[in-house]
Each structure stands twice: as structure tokens, then as C-alpha cells.
Design a protein around this nucleic acid. Structure first.
Lengths: 155, 155
DNA sequence: GCTTGACTCTGTAGTGACTACAGATTGTTA
DNA sequence: TAACAATCTGTAGTCACTACAGAGTCAAGC
């Protein structure tokens, strides 16, 4: 099959498939005479694996590790369990952070109930104060289980 | 004060301050003869406002809107409430998504209790199947209250 | 006056995981 | 043969920064 069909079968955009190839997650497939990529069922399986992992919000680096285990079936899988436990820990931590954030936002919202002029808006005035106990922000704009690239803001 | 002191006072990296200036969130300040930026208390207040908003995980575009209200104090602040309500909604939605994800990860983890060879690892085998009901993933790798730039994966 | 070291300047590139597009080529159907 | 779909490579953009390189500025000590 060609890239379009692989994309349809695995619900993956064509650019994403080529991106995975560039990133070394998907091996470079054979080509037709006209230089079109040709895939078979092994590619479907591998891409399904990757997409399933991504749907569970694993980072590509984590997926790389899991793929290495898939490629070495006699290896002991203990590290797979460890990786998954760590990932579950990250997700749980992010949930706790977001809940704290939600609480802060709701208490901020309570400062202004009816519309009035902006100069007297309790929300805007509160926001002008430095924030109290530092964001629980693990990666900026509610992103990033893993902390990620983004800066931590802890005033 | 110069940029270093502003950074210390507001717990903001120098590069971030310059970035906000480039982005138009912070007005370009006066300069010394030697071309150093000089800030005063109004800048401290404005930057504190921005950082406080960021610590609440608002996007810079949302903060831009709030700043417009701060700059027009006679305007009605009803839209501030609307924006905040929407933001709270996004956070709440992301928490729901992450909880669903946590459940999926835990049930995946249950498939392999003791370390064995990778070929028989229930986790790796399960991941090779296409994912069941599509990720609740609102932005890739547990990022993004706002959905953001990232792709949604819903197989 | 000179040196040292801290501070600041501009500009560019990198982060993650893609997405979007331009411009060219290939394949399929009428 | 022409039209059109599919694919190719390569580059740039997303968000909110961070990290440098290489140059210039400033204050304190000698």
C-alpha cells in the first residue's frame, strides 16, 4: 500500500507518517520505480503501536524505548512496567496540578459577579498582584505532563 | 531599574521580558545612553499582571485581551468574566480527559504484573492493537487545555 | 587610565510533535 | 492526451519561551 492508504488505515496524517520516518520511529520503506513509498502489514502494526502510545500521551522518546523492547522479544520487560508506572505518575501529578489551578481560577472568578467598569473589576485588580504561592504550572499553559521544554514559573 | 532587577522583582527571566516586549505585551521602555532598557513601577505592575495570568495558564492571546481591559478602565468588564469562565471550562475539560487517560493507563498496566520476556508482555501486545475509543487527547502528550496547535488523534 | 567582571544588547536557533504549504513529479482515468 | 489525484522533497510555522554567540556598557578596584 502507499502512504495515503496507510494513513487512512491508521488514522494518521501523511505528513505525520513521513515525520515518524524522519525521526527514526518508522523504518524507511521500499519505494516504487516512481519513488513512492510502499508499506506492508508490518508497517501498519508498527504505526498502530506508535499511534496507540501517542493516544496515551506518551512522548516519542518513551515510544522509542517501547519499540526497542518490541524489537528484542527475548529481553525482560521489567523496564516496560517501570516506564508505564512513571508515565502514570506524571499523568496523576498533572491532574493534581490542574485541580489546584481550577480552584485558583474559581476563587478569582468569585471576585467579580456582575459586569461593571473595568477599573473596579475584582478580577483585573487581583491579577495585578503578584501571584500568591507560585504556579503549580508544570509546563506552561496547562501543557506537559513531563514538564517539557517550557519554563516553570514559581515566583 | 534595568532589566536584571525587573527580572528579579517579578521572578521572570530576562529573555522572557524581552520576548514579551517583542510580542507587544510589554511596551518598549526608555533607554539609557548606552542603550540599556530602563523600567519603572508601571512596568513592574504590568509584568506582574502578565506573570500572574501565565501562572494561571492563560495563553498570551488571552492575556492580551485582559490587558486591553486594564488599559480601558471605563469599559464594561463583562467580557473578562466570559474569558475567565471559558478558561475554567478548558481546565475542567482537560482534567476530565486526563482522568480518562489515567484509567486507560492503569488498565494497561494491569496486563503485566511480573517481569517476563518482552514477547509475552501483555502491555506491549495490547499496545500493538489500534486503540479502542480514540484518545481524549486534547493536544498531544497531555499538553494543552486549549487544544492548541497540536493534532488531535481520534482513530 | 586600565583591567576585571558583571551586566546588557541584538540576533538566531532550538524545544515537541507535528501541520501547512510550494513546486515538482508520478499515477490513474476519461 | 488531458485532467486530476496522489505523492515527492524541502522549508517554514505553531507556542512560549530558552540558550547561546559575539559585541557593547558600566562600576569598582588597582
Amino acid at each position: 500500500m502507499r502512504i495515503g492508504e496507510l494513513g487512512r488505515v491508521t488514522c494518521t496524517q501523511i505528513e505525520t507518517i513521513r515525520y515518524y520516518e524522519r525521526e527514526g520511529l518508522l523504518a524507511a520503506p521500499a519505494r516504487t520505480e516512481g519513488n513512492f513509498r510502499i508499506y506492508d502489514d508490518t508497517h501498519v502494526e508498527r504505526l498502530s503501536f506508535i499511534r496507540h502510545c501517542r493516544s496515551l500521551d506518551m512522548a516519542l522518546d518513551e515510544i522509542r524505548i517501547l519499540l526497542r523492547f518490541k524489537d528484542a522479544p527475548t529481553e525482560n520487560c521489567g523496564d516496560v512496567n517501570t516506564l508505564l508506572d512513571a508515565h502514570i505518575g506524571h499523568v496523576a501529578a498533572r491532574i493534581r496540578e490542574l485541580r489546584a489551578l481550577e480552584g485558583q481560577l474559581k476563587s478569582l472568578r468569585d471576585r467579580c459577579h456582575e459586569a461593571q467598569d473595568a477599573a473596579h473589576c475584582g478580577i483585573l485588580n487581583e491579577l495585578s498582584q503578584p501571584s500568591r504561592q507560585g504556579a503549580t504550572n508544570g509546563g506552561g499553559h496547562v501543557h506537559g505532563v513531563h514538564g517539557g521544554v517550557r519554563a516553570r514559573y514559581t515566583p
